[in-house]
Design a protein around this nucleic acid. Structure first.
Length: 778
DNA sequence: TTGGGGGCAATTTTT
DNA sequence: TTGCCCCCAA
């Protein structure tokens, strides 16, 4: 039987409540009721550091909300409790549940970023900021990086903006300043990035803007350097809780630490096995060494799982034990045994989608609701085959992704006007709106304005430059256009003291945006609808925050993420990435593309054990989302980036408990072979006849090949031969403990990557091939 | 100033 | 294969 609350992370609580014959609503005196031993221990903990290691599906939210409620009704006032989460969703959920427990809405529940944004507004002087700073989002940040690249006059040959952005963000997460980066730079590239980072910071400062990382970084620095303020805050927040502690980065770690330095009442919850944001700067060591950081810490494990069947849990548990970086934890459940976890081998990605969709059809015909079914992918690009086939099967589906509401063009456009009203230094916003809607101010005019601003001393911000249009020396037409734009901005500047809704509506009409939207509404009504939605959002904000200012509203919108997940599609199959799946649960789960290189995702040149462990955790997270039915699939051939390649099943599959798994697919023999030859890898009796593919190995299915005997002679630039693709040059080679990877560029320019053991490549000596018309580009 | 076409890269993305 | 970005033509 499948219930209909799969989307609701609170299902668990409902189940728990049910199993203990309690109401959903607990009077304060009942906060200890119906708890298991470890749960009770956590709920009743009061003073000192505490680590709650909460396994997947073990009832964590229930525990922390009850503890907060208990604190708030005994030793503390609600406003003396600070609960920090990572997502708005988690924050809202906690607020709601605390409310349900009768604690009121005075408890401080907020995301890291929202908490910091507010703190920095209030204590802007101490932090060396202006009160009206704006928050640069990802696209603003990208523009600023491009600008910085230009100013640094660096040939962007091997430095994409994305790469720079990543490096800067990582540095900030680790609390590394531009100076420190320059000092410790190893190699030319690092120095370049250090220089760009420096300029990037200058631009942000000049624009009176902070990016997301700054919110954390500046707060951490402020709390570290300003002991007086730190102390006041510590007095104010006598009990601090940090959720998803395994995902904290250095800055967040510091914030939590500084806020609790003296009273030590830091209660953290998390699960190292679900740490999947290392690539975003999160440091799993924060949770792993909590007990070292806080020697008097108490640790409690929640190991009983209320979500999945025994078999699903056994498979996931076995997988995760392969990780070294973890805290020993043994999940168990009282739930039914359930059906075996299935692993399906498919011929290619279309067969994979077909097989999954067929299975879904069967489930639906048995009365399972579409919303109880989820398909998890490692990368969004994999969703396509599934979309197509779900569509043609007439099964409603939705993709939990897409452009976040506040990242849409039309939304960003209006908000840019408002941001400029609040913060006249916000050049990125000005540049965005100067010709939106089009008003005859093109690139050339903008360049003139910029040049004028830069040439002035001190350097002007663009808004000031616009207002001094007469001094720029523009052609008559451009001069006229800029004049009316300048007048428009003056008019808008006078709006700033009114409500969010009023300001928004005025801006929409004065700027001409509304007229523009109305005009295009015939062709595409969506932008207009989005704007209408924005107006009601503003209106709602005004109602909820009678004392709120435009600035508050802008901050609010800046920190709001993608809400796609929260709304809509109550009867659709959900397609989402494994990352997006964290925290959710579904009765039926399909995990797609469990192949080497995809899951684990391998990037060349950077395969180390940490990455693999995070990938393993990602699969673990995916598997533990499933309540009743779990299916993993992989395809022998996969079309990706417009190219079909032969794949190798993921080594993670070898790490599952073989005998508990139901192995399905065109070829039945492969898994049996697995059991015989251990994890060394093996082929399967291939029904497909593809040249060069490893699925073509004749039986008996031994490992495809070992390393080539002359491996020591392989080096970058070596010439190799592939049976299907011909001659190529080795452009990447990395030797790992278990597998070696190679990348080859072929004569026609195609580049392919393989695991060397399976690649069927042979090194050839240069003089053997000179007569084969090898191009000179080699 | 706008649009279209070619070139090129291509994870994950709580905020 | 798709999607973004940049440059060029009208």
């Amino acid at each position: 039987m499948i219930d209909d609350t799969s989307f609701d992370p609170e299902t668990l609580d409902a189940e728990l409540a049910e199993s203990h014959s309690h109401q959903a609503q607990y009077p304060a005196t009942d906060l200890r009721a119906g708890l298991t031993e470890p749960q009770l221990e956590a709920v009743t903990h009061i003073n000192g550091p505490f680590l709650l290691l909460a396994g997947a599906g073990a009832g964590k939210t229930r525990v922390i909300t009850r503890r907060a409620a208990l604190l708030a009704t005994t030793v503390a006032k609600p406003w003396e409790i600070l609960a920090i989460t990572f997502t708005n969703k988690a924050a809202n959920e906690m607020k709601e549940r605390v409310l349900t427990l009768g604690i009121g809405d005075k408890m401080n529940v907020s995301t890291f970023h929202a908490f910091c944004a507010k703190l920095l507004r209030i204590h802007h002087t101490e932090a060396g900021l202006q009160h009206n700073y704006t928050i640069a989002d990802q696209s603003d940040r990208k523009k600023i990086i491009k600008e910085a690249l230009q100013r640094a006059e660096i040939s962007t040959a091997n430095l994409t903006p994305a790469k720079v952005e990543f490096r800067i963000s990582s540095a900030k997460s680790d609390m590394i300043s531009p100076e420190a980066m320059l000092q410790n730079a190893e190699g030319h590239n690092d120095r370049l990035i250090g220089r760009i980072y420096t300029i990037y910071e200058e631009i942000l400062t000049h624009q009176n803007a902070l990016d997301f990382d700054d919110l954390l970084l500046k707060t951490a620095t402020l709390l570290t350097e300003n002991d007086d303020l730190r102390r006041r805050l510590e007095n104010q927040y006598r009990y601090v809780l940090v959720d998803e502690y395994q995902d904290t980065n250095e800055a967040q770690y510091r914030i939590a630490h500084q806020l609790t330095r003296e009273h030590g009442n830091l209660f953290v919850t998390g699960d190292p096995d679900q740490a999947i944001y290392g690539w975003r700067g999160a440091n799993i060591q924060n949770i792993l060494s909590f007990e070292k950081d806080y020697p008097n810490a108490k640790t409690v494990r929640l190991e009983q799982n209320y979500r999945s069947t025994k078999r699903i849990l056994a498979a996931a548990s076995q997988l995760i034990t392969a990780n070294i970086d973890r805290k020993e934890k043994t999940l168990w459940t009282d739930n039914e045994q359930g059906d075996p976890v299935r692993v399906i081998r498919c011929e290619d990605n279309n067969a994979e989608a077909a097989s999954v969709v067929t299975d879904i059809k069967t489930l639906i015909s048995q009365g399972v609701s579409e919303s109880d079914i989820a398909i998890f992918v490692r990368i969004n690009a994999l969703s396509r085959s599934f979309e197509e086939q779900l569509f043609s099967a007439g099964i409603p589906y939705r993709i939990a992704r897409g452009v976040a509401f506040y990242a849409r063009k039309e939304i960003k456009d209006v908000l840019a006007y408002l941001r400029l009203i609040i913060n006249p230094s916000d050049d990125v916003s000005l540049e965005r709106i100067i010709n939106t809607p089009t008003r005859g101010i093109g690139k050339k005019t903008i360049d003139h304005i910029k040049a004028f601003a830069n040439a002035s001393s001190p350097r002007l911000n663009l808004l000031e430059a616009v207002h001094r249009y007469e001094e720029i020396g523009l052609a008559k037409r451009a001069h006229q256009c800029l004049k009316s734009f300048s007048e428009l901005l003056h008019k808008l500047a006078e709006l700033s003291t009114t409500t969010a809704r009023h300001t928004l509506e005025q801006t929409l009409s004065l700027s001409g945006l509304m007229a523009d939207l109305n005009q295009t509404a015939d062709i595409d009504a969506e932008p207009l609808q989005n704007i209408e939605e924005l107006v009601s959002a503003a209106s709602e904000f005004d109602t909820n925050h009678p004392d709120g200012t435009i600035l508050d509203w802008l901050t609010f919108t800046s920190l709001l993420g993608d809400e796609d997940l929260l709304q809509g599609g109550t009867d659709s199959v959900t397609i989402m990435t494994l990352h997006a799946a964290k925290g959710l649960e579904f009765p039926a789960v399909y995990i797609i593309g469990v192949e080497h290189g995809l899951l684990p995702m391998i990037r060349f040149g950077s395969e180390d054990a940490d990455d693999i462990e995070e990938e393993r955790r990602l699969l673990f997270v995916g598997m533990t989302r499933a309540k009743k039915r779990l299916t993993l699939t992989f395809a022998a051939r996969r079309m990706l980036h417009g190219m079909t390649s032969t794949t190798i099943r993921s080594t993670f599959l070898d790490e599952l408990p073989h005998n508990e798994i139901q192995w399905l697919g065109d070829s039945q023999a492969w898994h049996v072979d697995q059991q015989r030859s251990g994890t060394a890898g093996g082929g399967w009796a291939g029904s497909s006849a593809r040249s060069g593919g490893i699925d073509r190995l004749p039986s008996p299915r031994k490992p495809a090949a070992g390393l080539p005997e002359d491996i020591d002679e392989w080096q970058l630039g070596s010439i190799v031969r592939h049976p299907a693709h011909g001659l190529g040059v080795l452009i990447d080679l990395s030797r790992g403990a278990r597998r070696s990877h190679v990348k080859v560029r072929f004569k026609n320019g195609m580049e392919r990557a393989w695991i060397l053991e399976f690649a069927n490549l042979h090194r050839v000596d240069f003089d053997e091939v000179t007569d084969e018309a090898f191009g000179d580009e080699w």
